[in-house]
């Protein structure tokens, strides 16, 4: 049953991720007094891309056509180790939370390489910006993970969530810092406003879109799908790492249903928050991003230090 869940959860990720994107778009449109597309629009887009002829640039090497598969696979693997509806995930033992950060890095590396493969100006521009942003976001992410791992005495995500669940509602200063830092990192890493704007193809501001500009057809679909999964992964991480309540702890049908309902509601709420911030904020100038991210890094290090100073009692 546990292994069934381990296979089921990533599949659930694949299936729900476009819906989450649709939901964010929906909320954003309503907030901005626009008519919203259907919640199912991302699925339609994916299907449309799926049946279209793919055009590969003449200058593309094998990296370009392999990258979508690698990026998608890395996201799938990351999804396989993050508990979604139930803890006790056996796959979380195979790869701990540091490895998850590693999977993100692997996906990013191939995304960037694919962007540089064609030799257009945009590819390099997106690649350079993506690596700059991630080189500041990833350490912040790791420090958040460090704080969590030090509190829970484990780097196994499933056990860490179990620990937070078991210790009940305790207000820890370190977790407040870590949560704030992780939210900033999530915004940067998933390319949302104010770092990047997923809805724009304005030449000089693109980051993620610039790297995948030359993709089309199925290749593009796979890339888009992977980035939707990534968005959902960050959402689930925030929701289940800091607010794991009502996640299923056994595999009974009621518990699983409760877990599913809980995560859907949590993600829906987080999305509303994201939509609000995207509506209220404007995109930053690229050289302001470093301040945003060093703030995240600072918060995460503060979180870790406050854990060490305030929360560890030694014998």
């Amino acid at each position: 049953m546990a292994w069934l869940m381990a296979i089921g959860q990533p599949l659930l990720f694949i299936l729900i991720a476009p819906l989450l994107t649709g939901w964010i778009k929906f909320v954003k449109c309503r907030l901005q007094n626009r008519k919203a597309p259907s919640l199912l629009q991302p699925y339609r887009d994916l299907r449309k891309l799926w049946v279209k002829e793919a055009i590969l640039p003449e200058t593309a090497s094998w990296i370009f056509s392999a990258a979508p598969v690698i990026v998608f696979a890395a996201m799938l693997l990351a999804a396989a180790i993050v508990p979604l509806v139930a803890v006790n995930l056996p796959t979380a033992r195979i790869a701990d939370v540091f490895v998850m950060v590693g999977f993100f890095a692997l996906a990013r590396t191939f995304l960037v390489l694919a962007g540089m493969d064609i030799g257009t100006a945009f590819g390099g521009m997106g690649a350079s910006r993506e690596m700059t942003i991630s080189s500041m976001a990833e350490p912040a992410m790791l420090m958040v993970v460090f704080t969590l791992a030090m509190s829970a005495q484990t780097t196994n995500l499933s056990l860490a969530m179990q620990y937070v669940l078991d210790s009940g509602l305790v207000l820890r200063p370190s977790f407040v810092f870590a949560l704030a830092a992780l939210m900033l990192v999530a915004i940067a890493e998933t390319g949302r406003i104010p770092i990047d704007n997923p809805a724009t193809h304005l030449e000089l501001t693109m980051i993620h879109e610039a790297m995948i500009l030359e993709y089309s057809g199925r290749y593009l679909a796979l890339m888009e799908w992977a980035s939707q999964i990534k968005l959902m992964l960050y959402g689930v991480l925030i929701a289940n790492m800091f607010f794991p309540w009502h996640i299923a702890t056994d595999f009974s049908l009621e518990a699983l249903a409760e877990g599913l309902l809980a995560i859907v509601l949590k993600l829906a709420a987080l999305s509303v928050l994201l939509a609000f911030s995207e509506t209220l904020l404007a995109k930053m100038r690229i050289f302001r991003v470093q301040e945003f991210l060093s703030f995240a890094y600072l918060l995460s290090v503060l979180g870790m230090l406050s854990h060490i100073i305030l929360e560890v009692y030694y014998g």
Partner: peptide
């Protein structure tokens, strides 16, 4: 679906 090669943008 068939894919084809073309000049990049």
């Amino acid at each position: 679906v068939e894919s084809r090669r073309a000049e990049p943008w």
